[in-house]
């Protein structure tokens, strides 16, 4: 009996790889729980507003899950760097660059969905944690103003934002894997490019030109039309995924 030759499709191999990665990277879930615990801690110290004088002090402490989201984003960024950095391992099983890339992206998308789900339940979780501590006698909530559509918005926005960060980190990680020797030069070139772009932008567009992080944030976060927002997000994701693929396409597997 000779060894049988197999010719399975790339997608079937990619799917198998996706399941395998999800399973073998389960420690990431442990890390998520740890980081989200930290996020919940910071959520209780989110922000405070208040007024007062020598007679009267009114403070409103906002318990907001924004820190939780930030910690979750940190988590997905770390995972994305991990996937893009350690690319040799999977090739010793059945893999090529396409299946490796596809399965990485698929796993990151699952992680982003998990973040979205945890954000949807963050309100009740915070309420539960506050209740267990018995230290929040005047606990109010403005979650009552949220309808089902708001929860859906919360899920969609947090999932896509997390995915955007993950895709960005993955792209940077692939660049690092592929062009290790050009990392320093590339970083310097990128910074110079940003500076040049901002100078040109201010010169021709005016002082309102803003490509800083605030400007990037506004580009997505201030968009109130869901269709336009989806176009922006999916376009950005497409660009990042496309660039990542171009970078990984001819990546060699070598020590």
């Amino acid at each position: 009996m000779n060894s049988i030759i197999h010719k399975d499709s790339q997608m079937s191999v990619a799917f198998e790889q996706f399941k395998d990665k999800l399973y073998h990277n389960s420690f990431a879930f442990f890390q998520l729980i740890a980081l989200q615990a930290l996020g919940y801690l910071f959520s209780f110290s989110s922000s405070m507003t208040g007024i007062g004088d020598q007679h009267f002090m009114l403070s409103i402490r906002h318990i907001s899950p924004i820190p939780l989201f930030i910690m979750s984003v940190i988590w997905i960024v770390v995972q994305a760097f991990g996937f893009s950095g350690e690319k040799r391992r999977e090739y010793y099983m059945v893999s090529n660059n396409f299946t490796a890339y596809f399965s990485d992206i698929a796993v990151l998308e699952i992680y982003a969905v998990i973040i979205g789900i945890t954000m949807v339940f963050s309100g009740p979780m915070l309420q539960l944690l506050a209740g267990l501590s018995s230290g929040y006698p005047n606990l109010g909530t403005t979650y009552d103003s949220m309808t089902a559509l708001h929860y859906l918005s919360l899920f969609i926005t947090t999932t896509f934002y997390a995915l955007l960060f993950g895709a960005g980190a993955y792209f940077l990680g692939i660049l690092r894997s592929r062009y290790q020797s050009f990392l320093v030069i590339g970083s310097i070139a990128f910074i110079l490019l940003l500076i040049t772009w901002s100078l040109l932008g201010i010169r021709f567009i005016g002082p309102g030109f803003n490509i800083g992080t605030a400007g990037v944030k506004q580009f997505y976060v201030q968009e109130t039309s869901i269709m336009l927002w989806l176009i922006k997000i999916i376009g950005s994701l497409g660009a990042l995924y496309g660039l990542s693929w171009l970078a990984i396409k001819n990546l060699e597997v070598n020590r």
Binding site: Q54, M57, G123
Partner: peptide, 23 residues
């Protein structure tokens, strides 16, 4: 004698993402 009043109100505030499309 007027005693100082300190009122602390804790309020759970949803993240702004939930209202991103709520003009």
């Amino acid at each position: 004698t007027l005693n100082r009043s300190e009122i602390s109100l804790f309020t759970l505030t949803p993240p702004p993402f939930a209202f991103q499309f709520d003009e």
